[in-house]
């Protein structure tokens, strides 16, 4: 049994969070993860408040366990979304793509536990000062929008910088990764890519097949020139995008437009010509499609074995 202080803090059985992935993390996936003992998250992506309210209510009908919502702070509807979270009494909110300062006070007063995703010690300290319950320190091995730091150096430095609990993310795909994250000082982990192939995940079967087929070297970074690099599988789309990006004659607006909707196309249509299949570097470790419950049980059992085995090196 893997138990950390995060379990009591978030009222969950295992210290495993499922990442909020746009066009992927919906009510069905979040509820499945929460039912399996982790903390499921719905991604509010760029959706409006009505879509989010429906998803939250749907998740409530599928689980009586706590679940959370990931808020993308650049969402144009973010003010209304912030209020829906309060109205629906969502227990946990994670934030990405921006500074949650504006909403922190509001959410904390409403009893919501706020857990910002941070790429540096500075933002971690800032979040702690603003009243965050914990932080998710995410390394650039992860899929989707990534920071510069990688997980191995980031986690211990964030742990040293703050006194609130630290959740590790980025590059964690199995029990070995979870055990390592705990050894670095984290008290929980967040996984995204591993859940892409879950039976409960509502994405095109091509997306899942691509993850299963992926090798270690099959992800790439694009969008660096736009200031927000994205890690995804190498596909025709990503190759074309990087080519356009490296061409000095391509205006940034054209690139932005090119990338717009590409994740939706990957998730819903499975089209590798036009779709951006976001995935982390652990994609190469994923060999089979499983139910969420199987994934979480496997992860916790592996973690236990690895942690117990660690003592063999202590003489």
């Amino acid at each position: 049994m893997i138990k950390t202080p995060l379990c009591d803090l978030l009222n969950i059985e295992f210290p495993i969070l499922q990442g909020g992935m746009a066009w992927i993390s919906d009510a069905q996936l979040a509820a499945a993860v929460s039912n399996a003992g982790g903390l499921g998250l719905i991604s509010s992506m760029n959706a409006d408040e009505n879509w989010l309210r429906n998803e939250i209510q749907k998740a409530k009908s599928l689980t009586d366990k706590p679940f959370g919502v990931n808020v993308m702070l650049m969402n144009p509807h973010v003010d209304k979304i912030a209020q829906v979270l309060i109205d629906e009494k969502v227990p946990v909110v994670t934030t990405g793509a921006g500074n949650p300062g504006k909403f922190m006070k509001l959410w904390i007063e409403a009893g919501i536990k706020v857990i910002p995703v941070v790429p540096s010690t500075g933002l971690a300290r800032f979040s702690e000062r603003a009243g965050a319950t914990a932080v998710i320190a995410e390394g650039g091995e992860s899929g989707g929008h990534v920071g510069e730091m990688s997980t191995m150096p980031l986690i211990p430095q964030v742990c040293d910088a703050v006194s609130i609990p630290v959740i590790a993310a980025g590059g964690i795909g199995d029990g070995r990764g979870i055990a390592a994250a705990l050894m670095l000082g984290a008290v929980g982990v967040q996984l995204g890519t591993r859940f892409l192939v879950a039976h409960e995940t509502n994405i095109h079967e091509n997306y899942k097949d691509k993850i299963i087929k992926a090798k270690d070297i099959d992800t790439t970074l694009s969008g660096r020139s736009l200031g927000h690099p994205v890690r995804s599988l190498k596909t025709t789309f990503s190759k074309d995008f990087i080519k356009a990006e490296n061409d000095p004659n391509t205006p940034p607006e054209v690139l932005e437009e090119y990338g717009r909707g590409a994740l939706r196309i990957a998730a819903q249509e499975g089209d590798s010509q036009k779709g951006c299949f976001m995935a982390g570097q652990i994609a190469g470790m994923i060999k089979e499609k499983q139910s969420v419950k199987e994934i979480i049980l496997t992860l916790t059992q592996e973690t236990e074995t690895v942690l117990k085995g660690g003592l063999q090196w202590v003489k």
Partner: peptide
């Protein structure tokens, strides 16, 4: 973020970064 926090510490105050 780093700098604003450093500046705040230097002036022993805090500013809204919203």
């Amino acid at each position: 973020v780093e700098l604003v926090m450093e500046i705040e510490e230097a002036f022993d105050t805090s500013i809204e970064m919203d």
